[in-house]
Simulated scan of single mutants.
Amino acid sequence: MANRTLKIQLFGHSFVKRLKDFVINQEDFPSNLKLRANPLVQYSGFGAGHVHTLKQNLDVVRDFKPDLVILIIGTNDLSSIDKSPNTVSAAIMDLVDTLLFIEQVRSVIVFPILFRKLNSQHNRHTVDIPWFNDRVYETNALLESKIKDCPYQRVRYWVPKGFWSDKALAEVISSDGVHLSYRGQQKLYNNIRAAVVAELKASQLGC
């Protein structure tokens, strides 16, 4: 890695798309995550994206050839009544395997699905919040367990700080009950940076 630039790809649903817009407009939050290695960081986000959306758009991974992928996906899948925590967690793990063994990504970091809060708007994101958040809790527990039990050490589960209490949700989730507020974007950025720093220290990707 010393002879070439580290490549990091954020791959996911609208959170990634909106984070890209955030870093474009914020001098204090550069796209390279403030890392000494000054990596190339690509933000590949798909609005209303499901796991199958990402599998249909693997060409963006193939073209960029990242060393590390940050995977942020699952919330739209869990909104569908016909998908269970078991099927969603299994689909995410299948995507992880595809990234590692088909697309030859060196490491993958999986972010958990975030809770939602009651919204002040009537929009297409409206779901029963206790029902949804219970499914989030179960899916995240399954993901964490599956990743812990992986026989290979190239996938990690990262729990971001500052997103889980009722007080935190009120601060980080916007009025639509789903997407991140300005403060939420800051916290997501900082957590992604922390996850990458930890991965670089623990792996052979370099700093």
Rank of each mutant, 00 (worst) to 15 (best):
I129R: 07
R116G: 10
L40C: 05
I129M: 06
W131H: 09
S31R: 08
T126D: 08
V41G: 03
E199K: 10
G49Y: 00
H122D: 10
V110A: 04
F11S: 01
L54T: 00
S79E: 05
A141D: 11
I8D: 01
S175F: 10
H52D: 11
S79K: 09
V110D: 00
A168C: 13
D149Q: 13
A48P: 00
P39F: 03
P130C: 10
A168S: 15
L180M: 15
A198P: 00
Q204S: 13
Y43N: 05
L205I: 14
L188M: 15
V88T: 10
Q186L: 11
Q185V: 05
I8K: 03
L200A: 07
G49P: 00
L118Y: 09
T87F: 07
R135H: 06
N133S: 06
A168L: 11
Q153V: 13
D59P: 00
H50S: 09
L205V: 05
A170K: 14
L205P: 01
S181M: 06
L200D: 00
Q153W: 13
R124A: 10
S165D: 06
F29C: 06
L58T: 09
Q186C: 13
Q185F: 12
K17N: 11
N57C: 06
W158H: 15
I70K: 04
Y152T: 11
F29M: 06
L6M: 11
G49D: 00
G162Q: 04
K83H: 14
V88K: 02
V41E: 00
